[in-house]
Design a protein around this nucleic acid. Structure first.
Length: 185
DNA sequence: TGCACGATGAAC
DNA sequence: TTCATCGTGCAC
């Protein structure tokens, strides 16, 4: 089941820890009387303004201001002019860290592919208007997996951040081992 | 005011 | 490996 909403305190912790604990939990969206649910199977951690792969490395700008805000809010941005990416803000206000949700396993009322950050936003209808939404609301939130299912976590370098030098090599991409909905091996 | 470049995905 | 496509950030 997926009824226990993750609390503000859950997000207000070490980003790498939160990223790994997000795996196996659920993304729940209530829209137009329908509930859509996906299980988080792949994420990437962006550790703050000192992480050269993170958008917040450029400092506080119009785009990144949500990343610099308090934890437990959605950071949604457009990428390559055609896709959107969904992130959750972590740690204290001003830390500017976030976790990119990269892939979901469809659970309920999801009829399109969700293996990739752009695809999952397209499948769920998430766009820039969702930027800054509170993930503790009743129509858009993450919920705990009950009971917790056991799985192994694979750690790999993040995708598409080769420009970030040493930061590109760090193992900040996490996914559920052998899950078929992970975007890339 | 202009312009280079992506935290992508799909086709070739 | 190439391309579609456009908002953002920074140079001028």
């Amino acid at each position: 089941m997926y009824k226990q909403k993750l609390s503000r305190a859950f997000y207000d912790r070490d980003t790498q820890l939160v990223a790994q604990e997000l795996l196996g939990n659920y993304l729940v969206i209530h829209t137009t009387g329908e509930r859509r649910v996906g299980r988080i199977v792949e994420v990437e951690a962006y550790l703050g303004s000192h992480d050269l792969a993170a958008h917040s490395a450029k400092g506080l700008t119009e785009r990144t201001k949500i990343m610099f805000g308090p934890p437990g809010y959605a950071y949604v941005y457009m990428i390559y002019g055609m896709y959107h990416c969904l992130n959750v803000v972590t740690e204290k206000q001003g830390h500017a860290s976030a976790i990119l949700i990269r892939a979901l396993e469809p659970i309920e009322n999801i009829s399109h592919r969700t293996q990739g950050p752009g695809l999952l936003c397209k499948a769920l209808g998430i766009d820039k208007r969702w930027n800054g939404l509170d993930l503790l609301s009743d129509h858009f939130y993450l919920a705990k997996s009950l009971p917790a299912e056991p799985f192994s976590i694979v750690k790999r370098p993040r995708i598409g951040v080769d420009y970030a030098g040493e930061w590109a090599k760090k193992l900040l991409r996490f996914y559920i081992k052998d899950n078929p909905f992970v975007s890339k091996k």
